[in-house]
Design a protein around this nucleic acid. Structure first.
Lengths: 341, 341
DNA sequence: ATCTCAACTGAAAACGTTTACAGTATTCAA
DNA sequence: TTGAATACTGTAAACGTTTTCAGTTGAGAT
C-alpha cells in the first residue's frame, strides 16, 4: 500500500504538501499530487491519522441485541446520520448484561470518539463506567441514575402509557391486566406506573394477580400470558377484558400464548401494547399499538453526539440535552368494548 | 489519558518492559507494572498499535439494510463469532446501491482487517472493487461473477425452491403464480429458475402474466400481488391456486395486498415463501416457509474470515471455501389442496 | 532595482506503540 | 572463582500521518 511518502516522491514535493493538499489547503503542485495519488491508488492510513489526531471518526453503538428489529432500526438511524458527517459506527450487542457491556466498551473505547448506548442496567455502576470513559456519551431509551450527566434520547413513555389507559377506559374496560418489563429500567417502570396511575385516577384498581412483571423478552411475554390463562383470568366472565403489554417482544410472546389457547381478540380480550411491530397489521386482529419513531431516535442520538464531539475538550460545552420524542396511538382492531355480561 | 511511558516511569522500568509484560512475556517487574497500570488506568492506544502492527482487529460488515431483520440476525451471528476472537465489527448499510457500497468500503477499508459483505450488485465491477481491497473478503448470500476468488457463504436456494415446488405439486396445485426478486442476484435467480424448472419437470407451465419480477422489497411484493388481483388471477375459478414468493419482505408486502383484498388463505389461495419471518406463525393463516439459518450464516462467514485473516499474507493460503447451509421447509397452514372446481 | 508582504514550501517533531539489537544481570557447572 | 549459558532489560528505530516553524519564492509597490 502506497503511503504519503510515495506520493510525495512521485509528485516531486514534500509530504507536507501532500498532507496539506489532502486537507484542502492551497498548494501549487495540487495537480501533480492528485495525479500521483490516482496513479498509486493512495489512501491515507486511518491508524496513523487517528494516532496523530487523537480522533477516529467512529462511534460505538451498544444495544442489547442488534437482531431485535427495534434496535436494528435505531442503529440504522444512527448510521444514516453519522455517515453524513464521515463517521463510522461500530456496533455491539450487550445481551442485556452489564458485564458484557463493560467489557465491550473497554475493548472499543480506544477506537472511537463517542458512545451511543442503550444501557443494560440503569444502576450507578453503569453511570460510573460511562463517566470514566471520558468521551461523549448519549443514552438512548434508558437512564442511569437521576443525574446521568449525559445527553439523553427518550420517547414519551408517560404520554404513551396514559393514552393507552385512557383509550381502554373510553372503550369501557374496567378489569384490565398488564404485562410489564423490568422495573429497573425507565421504559419498564414509566410505562407500568403511568398506566396504573391513569387507571387509578379513574378509580380503577388492577387486581395483583393480573399484574405480571419480568424481562422484556418474548419468552417472558409468552409465560406471563400463559399464567393469566391458567389463572382463568382470561375468557371468563369474571376475568379481565383487556390486556396492556409493555413492549413489542413481550407482546409477540403473549400473542403466541393467547393464540394457542384460542382466545379471540378482541372478542374475549382487547389487546394493546407499546411499540409497533412488523406485521402487527396483518394479524387476525391487527394490533393496536403505541408506536415510536425508532429511526428518528437514532437521528436524534447521532445529532446530539456529533455536536458534542465537535466541542469536546473545549471549555464551553453545549448544555446537556434531553430529547423526548413523541409516540402515537395507532388504533387497529385488537381493542373493542367489553362484552356486557 | 496515560500512555505507556507514564506506566513505565511509575513502575521504574522501560516502556519495552511494559509492552512485553502486556504481551504476556516474562518480566521481572511484572507486579510493579501491573500496579502502575491499575493506578493510572492505562489502556493501550488502539491507533498506535494498529499503526505499528498494521492490524486493527476489526471486520467491516456491509449489508443492504441493517434494519431488515434477516440482515440484523446475520450481523448478530458475525458479531458473536468475531467477538470471541477479539474482533470488532463495523457495520454499514449499502441500501442495495453499488455506489454507496464502494464509497463505504473506501472509507472503511483502512480501518479493518477483512470484509464480510452481502453485495448490492453481482456484476464484475463489484468483484474488481473487492479484489482491489486486497484484504480477506467473504461473500454472503450473493455472488460476484463466476469465479469470485473469495470465500462464500450461501444457503441452499436450489433445494429450497425445489422443495417448495414439490410441496405445492403434491397438494395438487397446477396453476401457480410466482413473485421473484431481482434476477441479477443469486437468490433471486436461483429461487426463480429452480422453482420454475421443478414445475416444468412435472409438466407444468406458469402463464407469463402470473410471473412477477422486481425488487426484493416489501413495496414490490405489495404491488405485484395487487397486480395479480387486478388481473383477476386470484380468487377466480380460472385463476391461480397457489403463490410462491421469493423472500420474506416481498411476502409481507404481498400478504398486505391479499389481506386488503379479502383473499382467504389457504381457502382461495395457497401461499408459500422463502425465508421465515417473525410472527409468520401468528397470521390468520400461519405461513408455510422455506426457512434459513441467518445466525448460522453469520457464524460461518465469521469463521471463514477469521481463518483467512490468520493466514493472510503468508504464502500458503487455505483454499477458498464455499459453504452452503441447508434450508428447511417449515409447514404451517397457508397451503392446502386447491378446491376442486 | 529594491523592498515588503503574502503565499507557499519543507524539515523535523510528535502521536503511542512494538521489536531488533545490543547489552547486563543471573544462574549454573566446573 | 570463573566462564558460559540463559534470562531479562533498555535504547532506538519504525509505523504514516499532521503541523509548527523557519525558510523561500513571487508579486506588487516604490
Amino acid at each position: 500500500m502506497a503511503n504519503i511518502h510515495d506520493v510525495a516522491r512521485r509528485a516531486g514535493v514534500s509530504i507536507a504538501s501532500v498532507s496539506r493538499m489532502l486537507a484542502g489547503e492551497n498548494v501549487r503542485s495540487a495537480e501533480a499530487i492528485r495525479r500521483a495519488i490516482d496513479d498509486l491508488g493512495y489512501r491515507p492510513n486511518a491508524s496513523a491519522r487517528g494516532l496523530r489526531l487523537g480522533k477516529h471518526h467512529s462511534i460505538a453503538v451498544i444495544v442489547p441485541d442488534i437482531s431485535n428489529p427495534y434496535f436494528a432500526a435505531l442503529v440504522r438511524g444512527i448510521e444514516e446520520r453519522a455517515m453524513t458527517q464521515g463517521f463510522r459506527i461500530i456496533v455491539a450487542s450487550s445481551d442485556e448484561q452489564f458485564s458484557a457491556e463493560s467489557e465491550l466498551l473497554g475493548n472499543l473505547i480506544d477506537a472511537v470518539d463517542a458512545v451511543a448506548i442503550v444501557p443494560a442496567e440503569e444502576g450507578d455502576r453503569t453511570r460510573r463506567m460511562l463517566a470514566d470513559l471520558n468521551k461523549p456519551v448519549v443514552l438512548i431509551d434508558r437512564m442511569v441514575g437521576e443525574e446521568p450527566g449525559f445527553d439523553l434520547v427518550h420517547v414519551d413513555n408517560a404520554s404513551g402509557a396514559k393514552a393507552a389507559a385512557e383509550y381502554l377506559l373510553s372503550l369501557g374496560h374496567r378489569r384490565i391486566g398488564i404485562i410489564s418489563g423490568r422495573q429497573d429500567t425507565v421504559p419498564g417502570r414509566v410505562r407500568h406506573q403511568v398506566f396504573l396511575q391513569a387507571l387509578a385516577d379513574a378509580g380503577i384498581q388492577i387486581p395483583a394477580e393480573a399484574v405480571k412483571i419480568g424481562e422484556f423478552s418474548r419468552d417472558f411475554g409468552r409465560r406471563a400470558a400463559q399464567e393469566l390463562i391458567e389463572q382463568e383470568l382470561i375468557g371468563r366472565p369474571a376475568g379481565i377484558t383487556a390486556l396492556f403489554v409493555g413492549n413489542n417482544t413481550m407482546a409477540q410472546g403473549a400473542l403466541l400464548s393467547l393464540h394457542a389457547a384460542g382466545v379471540s381478540i378482541p372478542g374475549q380480550l382487547s389487546f394493546l401494547c407499546f411499540d409497533d411491530f412488523d406485521l402487527a397489521e396483518l394479524l387476525p386482529a391487527p394490533v393496536t399499538v403505541i408506536s415510536r419513531p425508532a429511526i428518528a431516535e437514532g437521528h436524534a442520538a447521532a445529532d446530539l453526539l456529533l455536536k458534542r464531539i465537535e466541542h469536546f475538550g473545549s471549555p464551553k460545552q453545549p448544555p446537556l440535552e434531553h430529547k423526548v420524542l413523541p409516540v402515537s396511538l395507532t388504533i387497529r382492531q385488537s381493542c373493542a368494548s367489553p362484552a356486557s355480561n
